[in-house]
Amino acid sequence: MDLIRLKNVKKQYKNGVTAIYDLNLSIQKGSFVFVIGGSGSGKSTFIKMLYREEKPTCGSIIVGGINVAKLRNKKVYKLRRKLGIVFQDYRLLPKLNVYENVAFTMEVIGAKKDETRRKVLKALELVGLKNKVHNYPDQLSGGEQQRVAIARAIVNEPKLLLCDEPTGNLDPERSMEIMKVLEEINKTCGTTVIMATHDKEIVNKLKKQVIVLKDGRLVKQEERGTYSEAV
């Protein structure tokens, strides 16, 4: 079953730059997908449209049954509660410790304290940070901070996890740790993972489905794809 379906999606920014041209694709529930392409190929724009940070200029985007292109500003939170998002720069709150950063998601959606506690500890266990709940972000390595960000993204058990270059700031070893966590989430929770990256090594090693973008156009979408030099 398709979790995501894009039809004739085009995105032109206000300054006239067209980031995506006529994109048609669908992504199945439970899959692990790399979105690859050079810098400026439209990967971030694609991800942003999925969580309705940007609206497509035209075309339709369906995410988990929600027509994202038509979603009104007031209703965006409903979409956001069904997905988790991870960025290259972690985006943690420096004044909150690890536990509080992850619990933040639960709190702002009004979850009960005991439910919050249970889910936060579960998420932190999944990313392997259960022993650092009291640390503050500046007391963690980059890899650990990113794992906190992942825990925050999955704590509410979303169907979809979007990652925009999550390993962009990390060395290869830490990057592989992050990839293991993401694979684990994909396997054990059945969460669909979509990850934008330009890291050839990771893509070629993991052999997942790839969506290749070039200058805003879909080049190919294939299972067990690799990052070929042609891109």
Binding site: Y77, R81, I85
Partner: peptide
């Protein structure tokens, strides 16, 4: 970040 993780406008 609140907006990102799904806080409603009201919240």
């Amino acid at each position: 970040i609140m907006r990102l993780v799904g806080a409603s406008n009201f919240t």
